[in-house]
Structure formats: structure tokens, C-alpha cells
Design a protein around this nucleic acid. Structure first.
Lengths: 331, 331
DNA sequence: CCAGCACGCTAATCCGTATTAGTGCACGGC
DNA sequence: GCCGTGCACTAATACGGATTAGCGTGCTGG
């Protein structure tokens, strides 16, 4: 008997009870007033064992029950290697916690890609197949996020997001960048360049904000340059890079312009491959990606367990990597 | 507060039609004999636009009895980096095909780990959550495989497996190893060592079998040494490594023993990190991992679509990487 | 001896969508 | 005036599982 999936009706017919009884035995709810004779229960359980029956995900979700499935949504394919190096650590953390929680992971690979990015609400929104969802990605559409909140879908974002009551576990970029600026100032730097978009992704905006705040409070001159070549030509003693993959390029360009003494600092983890090899001992900080993934999975499970619980909004500290590319300014 | 999702019933009430009409407008099926007046259709479409309604996957999937979920089962955690480098390419292929097929991937992270490996039939078998399953892993328990077949679970294995009617997409290791042996013999090699377990994993057994067959038919002397140090001490002109990660170690050991002229060849892809850095231009062959994953997903989808279809049993050719570590024997 | 109750179970309903049989209506032809 | 026909749509049902009201049976207390 190959082909059709086994249903509760099948089990019911096999054991001579009703479908409702099978459901009751399966869920074994003490609080509901219904009771099943131990003997009947055993007969049903035996049949379930013998057939390898598992409740259908879709049927259960339709009846609004959970399946111990955590969804993972990324705005790019997860596995291809360009993105993999960046996403990998998050996934390690997510997988680790999922295993501990006894949950399976559903990767939404089917979501259609429109204009180069996946969209949640294009075509089927498959998110509802999972009990809840972890969102990964540099920037996530504001409208889509709001809609997720509005529809009451349980989710946790990896990375801070703007918007009220959006639950997230993020990295404290502002503090980390601030610390790097203060360190630079302590080493005699007074004119600093920030290279990168500075937005609209929250992770970029947070970095720029930390930069601006620290410059303000230390009295250093901080300038935001979207493009590296502008910063290289400017009169700075240190360049802070939003994208660490640009570090090799930056150092090469500075040498080319006869300014090998200018410091280069990176703000986080590379999100793409470097064109020019990066220096080994780049001064930078580490985003706690594995921990972010772990905690996001953890919080999602909590949220699924108790939908009324307060949404998590937590920033994890980044760890400074000393390196050798931030040096003292000589006068 | 959380709002309820919008359903077809809502749209129907808003526009004064029936739920069925909404469904019909949405799916716009020309072949079904049903027709809707352009004006009504427009009214419904406007309401859908205005509300941002998107069909609920759960309802849809329930109606057509397919979850569009492909399960992925590995005998180790997928993401941790030790295993990641090896599994990654398979997953890229699987993900790619899943996306094309409009399927999501369910990673069975919940499966309990017993004695260091995951077991399919331990605890409640969640396999049935997916429409079908892809199995990944060096060696898969024979008993568990037989049970999968017996219980009629739709599945496809990545890598050849012993056992009747086990569907797989594997790599043709025997042919690839045979080709390498013949190449070596053509370069004057007569005494070859095969280093590795040679089993019980099918991928290892296939390599050893290819080695034995090719030695036999070329008249070369082929010896199987489970351990590298044995092979290094022996009187061979070439060493074939089951595990490419051992290549650096092998070359170092040969130099240490004053035999730098001995050729070293690797049979496939490394499954772990090297202790000693491997040479850049190692002579070896490539396992078509991405393609194997792609085809496994493809065949699984076909199997799910038509459970009566013949199980796939296919070996894909490996590509030779010329390299520089297999050289001619000088007399 | 019967009311009342506890037990063990089932029938019915709901969730959201897809599909099909069928219904009501208008219009045309004779 | 009546039948036939085609159009536009709806009612009903299925899908798999959870839940609840309620039904029949057997036992107990008065």
C-alpha cells in the first residue's frame, strides 16, 4: 500500500474507533474532559507504531496547532557560497538550538525571488507552515515586517529592525563602533572617515550612529563617505569600513596614494568575498553571529510556546579584535 | 493587538459573492467550465488588491494534498563547519532544485543523536512530515534503509547504497579510481598502494573495488593499506588516498622517509580539515556533489509525484583534476 | 426499581481553499 | 406560452486534524 499518506481515519478504521478517538489518543490531553480506556488507547498506539503514522503538518496547522517546526527565511539562498560564509554562523546557532529544543527547521527555499530578492507576501506565504519564523537578511522590507506583526505571525528577526514591536536579537553595532572610535581617538586620531552606505539597513545605520555619537562626544572630526575612493583622497588618519571585505582594497589604495600610515579598521563581518586579499591582523570587531542565531531560535520557541509573551528586543555585545591596522598617530 | 488573516470568505462578503467565486477569480482557470462576468471579476480583484489578500498556503496545501516539503536527513548536523565544507555542495544542489520546484526544505534537526549519529527510527519518526526525503551521509544503517523501503517512505539517497530497490543518485567512484590507476600505469607505475578503510561505506567500497579491478586488468600490483604509515614504508611508486585531507600528511611523510618522488593521488573530496596543508595541485578527481544534490531533489519530486515510478539508481561521472602530484616513473 | 451519574466514546463542527454538480435567470425561437 | 439553452454564479463537499457537545451504557444510591 504505497502512495497515499496514512491519516487518522486509516488508524481509526484499523482499530475500530472514530477519528476523534485517534486524535484524542495522540494528543493525550489531560485537561480536556475526555477519557479513553487504557486498552483502547493501547490499540490505537500500536496501530500508530505499526504504520509509522505522523500527523500531517498541514492538517495540524489548519486547526491552529504547532508542529515543532521553526521556519527560517533568508532574503538570499542560504547555501551558495557567496552568501554562505556570512550566513553560516547564524545557521549553526539556529541549528544547535533547534536540535536542543527538539525542533526541525523549515527552509523557505520556495519563496519567489522578485527584483533580486525574496518576498514574503508574493505568491504563497508559506510562513504559516512553520510554527514560527526566524528572519535573516541585511535589510527586510518595512511593509512586510509590519504586516507580519499585524497578522500576528510569530517571528524573531536576527538583527535589529526598525518598527514597533518587531522582536529581534541583534548586535550592538553602535557601542562597538563607538568603542573603536574612542580607541582611535586615544591613539591620537582626530580626523576619521566612515566608509559605507550608513543605511538604510539597520545594521548600517546603527554603525553610522555609533560613529557619529562617538565623534561628537570625543570632539573628533568624523565624516561619512559612501565611497572608498573619496575617503582615500581625503585628509584622514583613520578609515572605518562598514564592509570588511573592502579592507585589502583600502590598504592598497592608501599605499598607492602614498599614505601607508593611515589606519584602516573594519566594522563587523565581511558579507562578500574580497577582491583584494585582506590583511591578516585587521583591527575590527566580531559580530556574535552564532549566539545571535542561537538566541533567536530560543526566543522564537518561547514565543511559540506563549504567544502573549513580550517580544524580545535584545542587542548582543560585539567582541573587539585588536589587530595591527589601527596605530598611533605620530606628530 | 493581532489581527486575523483575511480569507476568501472576507473578500466574498465584501464583494457580495460566494467564497467559491473568489477562489475561481483567483485561480482564473480557463479549462474549468466555470465563467465569471468581467465586472464581478474586477470587483473581486479590486477587493483583493485593497486588502492585500494572499491565499493561505495551509488551506491550499490541504486542498491539493501536497505539502511541497522535501525532507533532508543527514547523519550529522549540517551546518557546523567541520562537516559543512563536505556537505555544502550537496545542499547547494538540493536547494537550487527545490527552489525551482517550488518546494521548501525540512531539515530534520530534531532527530535524536544516539551513539554519535542520528537515527531515523528513534523516538517519533518525523519523516512523514515531509512529502519525501533526501538522505545524506557517509554510511546509513542498513536496517534503517530496509525499513524505509518496507514502509514505503518516498526517499532518494545521495550516494549509492547497498540493498534492493534503494533509490539513489551516486558518484561513479569505481570508474574514476580505475581511470586514475590506468593513468598511473600508463606513466610507468607498477606498485600502487590504496590507503583508507575500503569500507564499509559504499563510497569507500566502490573506490577499493575500482582500484582492485583496474590493478587486475592492467597487471599492476595493488595493495590495500588501511593506514598511511604502512603505505609510506612500503615499496610503492604511487599512493592513492581515500581521504584527500591526508595528502599533505602523506607528502610530508614521504619526504621524511627520503622518497619525495613517490606520487600521491586523492580519490574525491576531503571530508574533514587537513592537519598538514594539502598541496595546491593535487592530482585527484571531483565528486559532482552539486549535481548529485540537484538530481536527488529532482528524482525525489518525481517520486512524490508518481509513487509508482521506478526508483532511480544512477551513478554520475567524476571529473579528473590533472594536478602535478602524479608523475612518470623514472627507471 | 429508577433517577442520577460517571465513563468511554462519537458525531458534528471548524480551520481555508479548490472543485464540481447544479441552480436560477434571462433570452430566443416557435 | 412554453421549452431549450447558455450564462453567471453558488451550494456542497473534500482535504486532515482538533475540539466540544452529547449519547448510550452500566453502575450506584435512595
Amino acid at each position: 500500500m504505497v502512495g497515499r499518506r496514512i491519516t487518522q481515519r486509516d488508524i481509526a478504521r484499523m482499530t475500530g474507533v472514530s477519528q476523534a478517538t485517534v486524535s484524542l489518543v495522540l494528543n493525550d490531553r489531560a485537561d480536556s474532559g475526555v477519557r479513553i480506556a487504557p486498552e483502547t488507547r493501547q490499540r490505537v498506539l500500536d496501530a500508530i507504531r505499526a504504520t509509522g503514522y505522523v500527523a500531517d503538518v498541514v492538517g495540524r496547522r489548519l486547526a491552529d496547532r504547532s508542529n515543532r517546526i521553526l521556519g527560517v527565511f533568508t532574503y538570499e539562498p542560504v547555501f551558495p557560497s557567496a552568501a554562505a560564509d556570512f550566513y553560516h554562523p547564524f545557521l549553526i546557532g539556529i541549528e544547535e538550538r533547534a536540535e536542543e529544543l527538539g525542533c526541525d527547521l523549515l527552509l523557505f527555499t520556495s519563496t519567489p525571488v522578485v527584483d533580486g530578492r525574496r518576498r514574503l507576501f508574493e505568491g504563497d506565504n508559506r510562513m504559516r507552515l512553520a510554527d514560527g519564523c526566524i528572519l535573516l537578511g541585511r535589510s527586510i522590507d518595512r511593509i512586510e515586517l509590519e504586516r507580519l506583526v499585524a497578522e500576528g505571525h510569530p517571528f524573531v528577526s536576527v538583527g535589529r529592525r526598525d518598527g514597533d514591536s518587531v522582536p529581534y536579537v541583534g548586535a550592538d553595532y553602535a557601542t562597538a563602533v563607538g568603542a573603536l572610535v574612542r580607541k582611535a581617538v586615544a591613539l591620537g586620531h582626530r580626523r576619521l572617515a566612515y566608509v559605507g552606505t550608513g543605511g538604510p539597513a539597520e545594521s548600517h545605520a546603527d554603525r553610522l550612529e555609533g560613529f557619529a555619537e562617538a565623534c561628537l562626544s570625543t570632539g573628533a572630526v568624523g565624516v561619512h563617505h559612501p565611497r572608498l575612493d573619496q575617503a582615500v583622497r581625503g585628509d584622514f588618519t583613520a578609515i572605518l569600513l562598514e564592509e570588511p571585505a573592502d579592507a585589502g582594497e583600502a590598504i592598497r589604495a592608501l599605499e598607492h596614494h602614498g599614505k601607508p600610515e593611515v589606519s584602516v579598521v573594519a566594522l563587523g563581518e565581511p558579507t562578500r568575498r574580497s577582491t583584494t586579499p585582506a590583511p591578516k591582523d585587521l583591527t575590527r570587531f566580531r559580530t556574535p553571529r552564532r549566539e545571535m542565531g542561537w538566541q533567536a531560535a530560543d526566543e522564537l520557541a518561547a514565543l511559540v510556546g506563549d504567544p502573549a509573551s513580550a517580544p524580545v528586543r535584545r542587542l548582543l555585545p560585539c567582541e573587539l579584535v585588536e589587530g595591527v591596522t589601527l596605530s598611533a598617530v605620530h606628530h
